[in-house]
């Protein structure tokens, strides 16, 4: 059975793209509502939601496009995402005053079933796997 698609949006990648697309929409919608209705209440948290939405969107686009360029784009986005969820997750626990309202990344994405914490790890593993496949193809041209 051919289960080794080299494209970043095929096979398990399709599930990842779905999740990233979902989070881009979810974080984007949340940020849009928060920024439009209640910006002054927690500007840092709401701007972070918007930033997270952009990161998810860039990762989605990178994964869908694939190839060396798409993989690099997705790699940067997933790295920023992992860093973001770790930093914001930690800050939201240590400095509650700075985060009066929740973002996607608060408490390591607890409000979203910790998917925001797992997603970048899966993304980075998947990208590494894809890069190895691509490198192997370069070594032995068919």
């Amino acid at each position: 059975m051919a289960e080794q698609p080299s494209d970043t949006a095929a096979g398990p990648g399709r599930v990842l793209v779905g999740l990233y697309g979902l989070f881009a929409v979810a974080a984007g919608a949340r940020a849009a509502v928060q920024l439009a209705t209640d910006f002054s209440a927690a500007p840092v948290a709401y701007l972070l939601s918007a930033f997270a939405a952009v990161v998810y969107l860039v990762a989605t686009i990178g994964l869908v496009r694939g190839g060396p360029g798409g993989r690099r784009t997705a790699l940067i986005a997933c790295s920023v995402e992992l860093l973001g969820v770790l930093v914001v997750g930690t800050l939201s626990l240590t400095d509650r005053a700075a985060f009066p309202d929740a973002t996607v990344w608060s408490v390591y994405g607890k409000g979203y079933g910790f998917v925001p914490l797992v997603l970048p790890v899966l993304g980075l593993l998947w990208l590494r796997h894809q890069s190895e496949l691509a490198a192997a193809e370069d070594d032995e041209p068919a």
Partner: peptide, 17 residues
Amino acid sequence: WARSEPTRWAGTVLVVA
């Protein structure tokens, strides 16, 4: 999104949905 996926992972896409 699952329809055009010819592998086992199409089912997982539906699980997520």
